[in-house]
């Protein structure tokens, strides 16, 4: 019955080689279409519903362990943590008080300069699914999808800075590409002097590379890099990383600059999805002006 290259289980008379050829052509054309543009996003969304149970199941034990470890931790350590958090919150509140005054001043100055006021960005907390994607790329899945209004190219922050952006949206989940992915680049500016450049991922979650700075560029180890807002993906002014190493070689045109991401890319559990200011400009922009007039 099992003649090599012959009949397969009597179900079909099409030779093995021909079936292989047809299916190969099919998957090759799938790849071609998928690589060009996102005509296949509908198909991908349908598949993603089918594999969603697997993602949830794989993620479950890790989530459960978190719950168990919280409920088992003793009273003293919880009280300590509570006290720590309270003092932390107090510090933040003090800083926020000044922030409100500064923000009002900023808006006033911007109105005087006749430039558009910067408005607050809308955010949504998303949980990272404990699922490993391709180990060669810096990507992960989050538990927000189409229903939450997530879109491709949306910026993603964590508590310390910019983490990445949305690379693909499925029905219940989304795929995130981190700023440390080798295929990703963030437009940044040096906070100290406003020098603009681009931070490129390296594939290592603790390193970003700044390849487009000339040897005589004014940059030094310890400089804070913030997002410049150019490119229109990331909101401006959020920390991206800190320069840790500047190597200037006399024979080379460009300096070798390495930065460490501000976001804790390999330790995050939760991230913030940001809706860029343009979406909310209509409403908050006017209230911003009203506040100034008061």
């Amino acid at each position: 019955m099992n003649v090599p290259g012959g009949v397969d289980g009597g179900r079909t008379a099409v030779p093995l080689g021909l079936r292989f050829l047809l299916l190969t052509v099919f998957s090759l054309s799938l790849m071609l279409v998928d690589n060009r543009d996102d005509h296949l996003s509908r198909l991908r969304q349908i598949f993603s519903v089918a594999v969603y149970p697997i993602q949830i199941t794989v993620s479950f034990p890790f989530k459960a362990w978190e719950v168990v470890s919280v409920s088992l931790s003793d009273r003293v350590s919880l009280l300590n943590e509570n006290a720590e958090l309270k003092s932390e919150q107090l510090k933040h509140e003090v800083r926020l008080q000044r922030m409100a005054a500064l923000e009002a001043e900023n808006i006033r100055l911007r109105v005087m300069l006749d430039s558009s006021p910067r408005v607050a960005d809308r955010v949504l907390v998303a949980e990272i699914l404990a699922v490993d994607l391709d180990p060669y790329r810096q990507r992960f899945s989050i538990n927000r999808g189409l229903g939450d209004g997530v879109y491709v190219g949306q910026a993603l922050l964590d508590a310390n800075g910019i983490a990445g952006q949305i690379a693909g949206v499925d029905t219940f989940t989304s795929e995130v590409i981190l700023i440390s992915d080798a295929d990703h680049a963030v437009p940044v500016s040096v906070n100290r002097n406003g020098l603009r450049t681009i931070a490129v991922g390296t594939g290592d979650s603790r390193r970003l590379s700044l390849p487009y700075l000339t040897n005589n560029a004014d940059i030094e180890s310890g400089d804070l890099l913030v997002s410049s807002g150019l490119g229109g993906v990331f909101p401006s002014g959020y920390p991206v990383g800190r320069v840790v190493e500047v190597r200037r070689q006399p024979g080379q045109l460009f300096a070798e600059v390495v930065a460490e991401p501000a976001a804790e890319l390999n330790r995050d559990r939760e991230v913030l999805l940001v809706w860029a200011a343009e979406d909310t400009k209509q409403s908050t922009g006017t209230t911003g002006l009203a506040e100034v007039e008061q």
């Binding site: 099919f26 998957s27 296949l40 993602q55 699922v131 994607l133």
Partner: peptide
């Protein structure tokens, strides 16, 4: 492909 977010196919 769907699980790992690679190119479909």
């Amino acid at each position: 492909d769907t699980l790992t977010g690679s190119l479909l196919g």
